[in-house]
Design a protein around this nucleic acid. Sequence first.
DNA 1: ATATACCTACCTACTGGTAGGTAGTTTTGC
DNA 2: GCAAAACTACCTACCAGTAGGTAGGTATAT
Lengths: 179, 179
Amino acid sequence: MAQETINQILDAAEDKARTGGYNAFSFREIAKDIGIKSASIHYHFPTKADLAAQLARRYTEKFHTHLLSISESGNDLHQQLSDYANLFYQALRTDQKMCLCGLFAAEMNVLPDDVKKETRLFFETNLQWLETLLNSHEIDNPKNEALKLLAKMEGAMLMAKAFESEDYFQEAIDLSQYK
Amino acid sequence: MAQETINQILDAAEDKARTGGYNAFSFREIAKDIGIKSASIHYHFPTKADLAAQLARRYTEKFHTHLLSISESGNDLHQQLSDYANLFYQALRTDQKMCLCGLFAAEMNVLPDDVKKETRLFFETNLQWLETLLNSHEIDNPKNEALKLLAKMEGAMLMAKAFESEDYFQEAIDLSQYK
DNA sequence: ATATACCTACCTACTGGTAGGTAGTTTTGC
DNA sequence: GCAAAACTACCTACCAGTAGGTAGGTATAT
């Protein structure tokens, strides 16, 4: 089973992609990092587009798992949104890195189609989860409110990166209106 | 006077940088676009870092000019913030491209120091302008409010890119609280 | 016998950057 | 007033390094 290698490849790629985007990771660098040859990565991921698409998909799936566990908690709206914001904050804090799909979104125009598709799926997944949550708490115009919340998360992450301090994320996130 | 060439180089570089970030423009591509040789670009900008730093600086300066003209209008708070949001919206709409510094911010970790510095300056310039505006209209905690507004702008731009539609920007921007 | 998971060796295309040359313009010294 | 020197804004030709990708080989396990 080569699942372990595949995970290692994706881990290394994610690390680099979340630092500088689609052009910031290469087959050679990943190979060097995990101790195999670049040609061997092509065995698992024929093209770079395949690798990046898988990367975005894995990222979205992991994120979705966290979303489900938040909604299953049964906590009140403010707490769930707090936990939600914390998903982004922890990504910043523990990895000192941007949201993978946030970075990909910024580069949307230069991404291969498959990667675009997976990137958009991340945002759609988030919007849907937020909308359901807001709707179940009888918030007006949940669709629009969801979009504003998602934009707030990504914008706050960008502030943290721009000023190179996670604190800016917390300062930019204000969920008091949902209390 | 070679100012014209310099402008052409920066224009071509900005076009590409705003599409895919720091790694999305090369001396050769720019040279080809404007009809000179890549070596000649090095004459005006010794290194890529120099070029990108100048690019960010020019971008910030232009933006700052617009900011000044908004504050000189003497319009009410809501109108000025609307005009402010429109600066970002127009960048999206007319160029179909991301905010240069928003993209650079996402890639902060891989930028040369000079480019980092200029990128941060863009955000500081925005924060300062917003803070002054909010302060003069007796808004509570203007510093924090400024950060939240700036995050909102960049977040909304990211939404527009993620979904490849400018409409998402307008939907994510809601300034009704400042009415 | 076949499939898996790697390998070596190589390809073409492109990257930022440098050395050294040149035509045309401007500045300097007498 | 004019020739020499210097400067500007390009050029050709090249470098080492890296990019994604391919062909074909090999050891191991089923």
